[in-house]
Each structure stands twice: as structure tokens, then as C-alpha cells.
Simulated scan of single mutants.
Amino acid sequence: MNFNFLTPVSDSVLTYNELLSTQALGRKIAIHSSENGIPNLDGVQLVIVGVLENRNDVNYIGEDFSLNEIRKSLYELFPGNWHTKIADLGDINKGESIEDTYYALRTAVSLLIPKGIIPIIIGGSQDLTYPIYRAYDALMPMVNIANVDSKFDLGDSTKPIKNNSFVGKIILDEPYNLFNYAAIGYQTYFNSQEEIDLMDKLHFESYRLGSVSQDITLVEPALRDANIVSVDLGSIKGSEVGANQQVSPNGFDGKEICAISRYAGISNKVTTFGVFEYKPSNEDHLTSGLIAQMLWYFIEGVNYRVKDDDFSLENNYQKFITLVDQQELIFYKSIKTGRWWIEIPFLEEINNKLKRHTLLPCTHQDYQNACKNNVPERWYKAFQKNSV
């Protein structure tokens, strides 16, 4: 694999790493260095890629930044009882143009995923989610994105792409490969009524911050169903991060954002995880520490992945059938993990990319609600999208 567009991890970080305990995570990661070049990726399951691109941030004023503090914070943590091999491939620098950076990121993701390697992207502005999404064009017919963010980022898609409008581009640019978009942790006062109505009209999912904080398990099915999970650090409460990073007094706390990261890791479908909108400063060890812990929990989740969505063998699952408004709903519960799915029937007359019965992750609560004659909202939205 040719990654000549990647620059090595800085010598200052490598020197810092050498002083750490031999048990520390940084001592167990294969690192791209100027001395040894890009590490051999045979058997590697997770790679870290930094992207130093922030020119499409609406507040960009020409500042450069580095990811050294995040790396130091991550390297000094101790790994869990993990079996996965991890590599740090260094950074994609700003290209001559933003499109050059996009091309490099898209290339990296499209090379890694077919090899069974999950890229963990850390970097600048969240519009980098767009080239990640485009990397899937040749990989799969339909893509699901979960965006952990206080805003929907739909924006005005007729204008050039920015970090607050990239989702509009994803929806409207050909080829149309987006099946589901789930906004996790949105705060109503940051989103116009038009955007809220559009999310509804497109049958996309949105989870308000208050609902998720009340019951974090609400978002597990959406994360289990996502291929790409993109986290905007602006979704995190101001008191949890450094001064440069503070966006809102409300948001997820550290424990909640780490739980969300772990759910993303446990999902068998998630093949790219990204954390964006990092704005470093020398005095800020809080933000880099929190990002490092988020990455730790994502890696922890990947290590505990269980193949529980194979429903070809009857002894793998229990099947439940319930009737809601003359509509037969079929639920499956994995015997191995206790996780639930619901079947979305395929409509023969519709020419779409879903050519079979599709199983949609759901919760036990969805099944209980269906037994009380309430159609689960996730099922309804997916069924509507399938009918378009």
C-alpha cells in the first residue's frame, strides 16, 4: 500500500514515548517514524491517521495546529486486555489545495478498509467526514453515518463545503450512497426549524442531548448500524475541555462521550471512527486527555466485538413476531449478546439498493413498545426510506 502522502510522527513525540513505561500503549503501537518509515501493516486491525486540515472551518484564520498532545496523551495510557494490533501512520499534511487533502484522506480510507483495517481519524474541521464518506463509493452500495454533534451540519449545500454544511453535500452530491444519517446529541437552539423539519422529511434520525443524557443506551442501535462515526468536539460540555475548545455550556460529559465511543467500537459495522474540531493550545492538556480516552474506549470496544448478527443458524437467535396496526413486525434477539434487531421488509416494486430483508438494530424497549401496539420510530423511518 502506497502511503507516500503521510508524514511521520514527530521526533518530540517519539522521544516522549521512549521515556514511558514499557507497558504503556505507545510502546505497543507500530509507529511511522522518519527513521523506520511506515510500519508493516500485516495483521494490524486499527490505524491512527492525523489530518492537519482545518481551512474549511468557518472560523479559520490561518492557524496551523499539531496533534502531538493527543498522541502523547494516548501513548501514556495503558492498554486493556486487548488482542488487536495498532499502528500510528502519522499525519496527512495540508495539501496545496483543500481538495488535495481530501483526495489523500479518501485514498487512505479506501486502501485501509478492504484490508480489514479500521482507520481512526483525528484532526481538523469536521468537513473531513465528506472525503471519508466518498471513500466508500467503491466499497459498498449504501452508507450509514452517525454524527455526534450539537448541530445537524446540513447547511446551504449550494455554497462551497464548510464544516457546518458538509452533510448537505453528502446528501445532494452524486453518487447518492447515503442511506441513513443519525445526529446524536443535537441541541435544539443551535438548529433552525427548517433543518429540524428537513431531518424529519428525509426520515433521518436525531437524538436530543437531553434524551441521550437520560438514557445513553438509546443511541446504541444507531451506532451499531453506522459505517462511519464522526464526532465533533463541539458536542462536549465546555467544562470538560480546554478554553480553546469551549463551544457550549451544555453538551456531553466525559463519561458519556467515552460510552458513545465504546458503542461505536463494539459495532461490527463501524469501519471508520473520526474525532474532529480539535483546537490545541500549549496549556490545554484536558482536551487532548479526553480525546485520548475516547480513542482508548473505541479501541476497547473493537476488542470486544462479537459476531452476533449471523441469523442463518436458528440456534443463534430467538425470533419474535408481533402485530402492530395490521403490520407484522419480526424481531430477532441474539442469544450470544442479547442485542435486538427488527426486520425491514423489502418492497419488490421499488428499485433500490437493498435487495433483501434488511435487519435493523433496535432495543428491547422497541420490542416491548411494539407489543403495546406502538411502531418503533427507527423501523418506521427505515421503512419510509425503503419505500422512496
Rank of each mutant, 00 (worst) to 15 (best):
P361D: 04
L290P: 01
H357L: 09
G116T: 09
S211G: 06
N374D: 12
S157P: 03
S10M: 06
I98P: 12
Q293C: 05
Y102T: 14
K255T: 10
K333P: 02
V51P: 02
R71M: 06
T7K: 03
H83Q: 14
D153V: 08
C371A: 05
S288C: 03
P119W: 07
Y75K: 00
S387Q: 14
S33A: 01
G43F: 02
E240T: 13
Y297Q: 04
D153C: 10
K336F: 07
S235T: 12
G274A: 13
S334W: 08
P131I: 15
L354N: 10
N268W: 10
A259E: 12
G50T: 04
T322N: 10
K372D: 07
S248K: 07
Y136G: 10
F331T: 08
T129I: 08
R305H: 01
K385D: 05
S73P: 00
G238C: 08
E69R: 14
A226V: 09
G123Y: 06
I120R: 00
N36I: 01
N93I: 15
K162S: 15
E69C: 02
L74N: 02
Q293A: 03
A135I: 11
Y304W: 11
L41T: 04
P376W: 02
V9Y: 02
N40C: 09
V47D: 01
L154T: 04
P221H: 05
Y176V: 02
A87M: 07
D366F: 08
L14K: 03
G50S: 12
L313S: 13
G338D: 12
G37Q: 03
Y176S: 06
P131D: 11
A138C: 08
E300T: 11
N93P: 15
I29Y: 00
D156T: 09
Y133F: 15
V49Y: 03
L77H: 02
E300A: 01
G124P: 08
T7W: 03
T7V: 11
D309R: 13
